[in-house]
Design a protein around this nucleic acid. Structure first.
Lengths: 264, 264
DNA sequence: GATATAAATGTTATATAATAACATAGAAAT
DNA sequence: ATTTCTATGTTATTATATAACATTTATATC
């Protein structure tokens, strides 16, 4: 039956990867050979790829590919601190009201957020082409991509055209990523165009949230795009007394995202 | 040795997929167990994924994912007429001089072209976010992405912002895709914004090439973005006497791309 | 409604591949 | 020179995939 085949596909998409054993447990009234044949069919459709003892979801793989930021010379990148980023994204997702216009920055933390938001009807402006691609999965989401020069590093577009483009767009909520934060320099990033773009968004948006994991605390990059007093809220995974003081003085709310495991 | 492991990775990237047998033949002086362990390491790095009897390249998979145009309701799409598209792209690649500014449209044929162009130093403006992603693979290519609303169907951005954006960009060579061509309607496409964008590019570019496989001949879509006399050249995989006459009268060059297999 | 045909599923035997555990050789460190 | 570690090889075992055939279920045709 086609029914079961679709179900199998959905299960695999959901979990990312499933063993034949798990499938057998889920479908006890068909033989494992039938399930194998289902996997064959799904693979032929390009929906999954079979691995030893099970299968992986292509859709899921595509997510990790989009994450993988056109990999660096050794192929490893952005695998760092995933737990923190996921937690931060989870916390941010709670702040993304529906029915309003949302700006989403580029970067891996924002990509984590995109995954969580891609199920609902929304209007999204973004500077990240992987974010755009992820959000476009949902038929009911309108995705607007900023134009400009593409940065290989973080798949972010920025530049002269970007500012023009943003001029005519209203932003209710802006989710912005930061490369670093320090007391002296504020929120910084390493690219001039990107910095200008972020600064413009900050000046324009009604609510401004910055997403940054705690490893970026106390460091700085060349370009400052905002000071604490410019932002409504910082969502991060760890705090210091210093940071709390700065936040309090600037009237910037601090949200501490709980990472999955215990964190002592 | 790390050396061999890198080599194995490169081979797999190149061929997209390799069996253990093939690897054994390529590396006769190590045992198959060693090669297995290499595959384990490469998989841990996220470079390949192991399948029964061999491995697949993630980089290669990512290409098919980018192709797969945010799949339609049944997951199959754009697998049609791949041979023709590849041949057309191959012919077009020969026309893409280096050291000039190139516009690349969105769509699967253009994505085929992107794969071929992504090895050289270039300046590229594009409306396709998958095209942009593919081109960004090369460190020496500057990629400029048009902004605007993203179409789920073909991962194309277009709209008001796009025209503004294009205003300040000079285009030496434009590679444009077409959904349909007919004698009465000329080159057409199905989206208004996209049509305007294409038309603007055509008006602006010094050389204008249109890429279209022959299945799209004789049909038409709502919006006309160019007539034969507007274009310098049509690259396709098959011709008709009718088409040849039209081309001749309009002064549009016809390039016939040879598909791999014999085509009688 | 009966029969023929095709499609889907089940069963088994066989071939193939993956793993684990241990053995060996080569390189780096002391 | 000796130790230690890492990379590689060997083998036996286990698990998995495949192929071929048997059976059931659905579909079409008369």
């Amino acid at each position: 039956m086609q029914d079961r085949q679709l179900l199998v596909g959905n299960y695999i998409d959901e979990k990312g990867e499933m063993s034949l054993r798990e499938l057998e447990a889920l479908f006890p009234d068909v033989s494992s050979m039938t399930l194998r044949r289902d996997l064959d069919a799904l693979e032929a459709e390009g929906r999954i790829i079979k691995i030893k003892g099970g299968a992986k979801s292509i859709r899921h793989l595509s997510r990790s590919i989009l994450f993988q930021n056109v990999e660096d010379d050794y192929g490893h990148r952005e695998l760092e601190n995933t737990a923190a980023k996921e937690a931060i994204a989870e916390a941010a997702a709670g702040l993304a009201e529906t029915g309003c216009s949302i700006f989403m920055d580029a970067g891996s933390t924002l990509m984590c957020l995109a995954r969580r938001l891609s199920e609902e009807r929304r209007f999204v402006v973004t500077s990240g082409i992987n974010v755009a691609m992820e959000m476009a999965r949902n038929k009911h989401t309108i995705v607007n991509l900023i134009g400009g020069q593409l940065s290989r590093d973080n798949l972010c577009v920025a530049g002269a055209g970007a500012l023009n483009h943003l001029q005519n767009i209203n932003i209710d909520i802006a989710f912005i990523g930061a490369s670093c934060f320090s007391a002296e320099a504020g929120f910084t990033c390493g690219d001039y165009n990107e910095c200008e773009m972020k600064r413009y968004v900050v000046s324009k948006a009604k609510k401004k949230y910055v997403l940054m994991d705690s490893t970026k605390l106390g460091r700085s990059m060349p370009y400052t795009f905002a000071r604490p007093e410019d932002m409504d809220c910082l969502i991060t995974d760890n705090t210091t007394p210093m940071l709390e003081e700065i936040a309090q003085r600037a009237g910037m709310r601090l949200i501490l995202a709980q990472t999955g495991g215990c964190d002592h």
